[in-house]
């Protein structure tokens, strides 16, 4: 399925499920996401992890709602299953979508300005460098007997300085290679947006609407 449409579908369903309380639709979404993940050969360990995490949080949340609130059993079931819908659908999306392909699709199909698409890609390719930079900043501080925590302003300060440097250099490099903001571009690889994608998108969304508004528990 086309990544942009897939993302839109994911967000729309997650949003609807957050506001409407129908647990049978939640269960159906869980089953469908699980089947889609199995179909795409997601490893068992991954699936186990995707199950244990929401199991713990959903149970803890339901327990607090029982102790500190006056929610009905129906509402508790909805909240419990909702957690799984989020995690399973998120798992289905992230495990079957490549970020590079998604960005390309957003640029070509969703008309995201190319400066954003290429800006994101340029920065995402720096991911290992960013992680290395954090390690370097911490090690450098340790050599002076200073421990940097998540709440130390100095850690953020140093990383932001490095980030400013890199973004200047990358932007200059892209400009010198002929990248012009807002100029029309051709694409070496095109992401297809087929009629089939629209059909899957429309039918899935329609099915969810029917489930939500037909009066199921």
């Amino acid at each position: 399925m086309n990544p942009s449409l897939k993302l839109t579908l994911l967000i729309l369903i997650a949003l609807e499920v957050s506001f409407i309380q129908v647990w049978s639709v939640n269960v159906a979404l869980i089953v469908v996401s699980l089947l889609l993940m199995l179909f795409n050969h997601v490893s068992w360990r991954r699936l186990l992890w995707l199950t244990l995490v929401p199991l713990f949080f959903a149970s803890a949340l339901v327990w607090s709602l029982m102790l500190r609130g006056d929610a009905s059993t129906h509402f508790l079931i909805v909240i419990f299953t909702r957690m799984f819908v989020y995690v399973y659908m998120g798992g289905w999306f992230t495990l079957t979508t490549k970020p590079l392909w998604l960005t390309r699709s957003l640029e070509q199909n969703a008309k995201l300005p190319s400066k954003f698409a290429y800006g994101f890609l340029a920065a995402f390719n720096l991911m290992p460098k960013i992680q290395a930079e954090v390690a370097t900043v911490r090690a450098a501080a340790l050599m002076r007997g200073e421990v940097l925590h998540v709440w130390s302003p100095r850690l953020y300060f140093k990383v932001i300085l490095a980030a400013m440097n890199w973004s200047d250099q990358l932007a200059a490099a892209m400009t010198s290679h002929g990248f012009v903001e807002g100029a029309p571009r051709t694409h070496a690889l095109t992401v297809p947006l087929l009629a089939r994608d629209w059909w899957i998108f429309g039918i899935s969304l329609l099915l969810v609407q029917v489930g939500l508004f037909v009066g199921l528990p």
């Binding site: 800006g119 994101f120 920065a123 960013i130 998540v150 990383v159 990358l170 990248f179 903001e181």
Partner: peptide, 23 residues
């Protein structure tokens, strides 16, 4: 928005995303 700002905001977001995930 210019390309430099977009790269900068993304790098900061990646850095923060790693922190979000780490906590």
């Amino acid at each position: 928005w210019h390309i430099r700002d977009i790269i900068l905001v993304t790098i900061i977001a990646i850095f923060m995303g790693v922190i979000f995930w780490a906590i």
